[in-house]
Amino acid sequence: MEQVIFWILAIGTVASSVAVIVPPMGRNPVHGALSLVVAFFFLAGLYVMLVAHLVAVLQVLIYAGAIVVLFLFVIMLLNIQSEDLGHPRPTISKLIGVIAVGFVSIVLIGFILKDKGMAEPPVGLPSDSTFGTVKTVGNLLYTSYIVPFELTSILLLVAVIGAVIMAKRRL
């Protein structure tokens, strides 16, 4: 049962990801963005399977809810017609790149499948486990990871300043 769900979600994720980079309906980036949302939802499902409830929620909220919306917003703002996008130009260098990526991925997957330690299924969690809940993750975040957490606020501030500088018409 579990495996079935895994396979459905996995195939869904991969298919929708591929749809991002090879959109089924032309080269319109809107379709890419929509495929991305789908991929994110599938991923959220996978995260739930991994008992990462908080991250799954964040995934939907931030990625699907905020980032992709931002993407769509920009696409709409730019109002790019698909004829503006020009035709795809497959070049030799890109081909080389794809081959290199394929090679690297295959080797990495080979590593992963070869390793016996990784073939073990994970230990079961107790039924009353608080694993992956807001409470436990938050606890870590405010103790062991307090410094990077605080620094993230600076990062977001810098990003806001940066976005304003780069995008605002008149400063």
């Binding site: 579990e2 895994f6 991969v14 399977m49 990526v101 690297v104 991925s105 997957i109 299924p121």
Partner: peptide, 20 residues
């Protein structure tokens, strides 16, 4: 909910990474 071995997840992750 825990029958899937680690290597499957990692493989899926790596495939996604490659696609990206």
């Amino acid at each position: 909910m825990s029958g899937i071995p680690l290597s499957w997840w990692l493989t899926l992750g790596t495939v996604l990474f490659g696609v990206g």
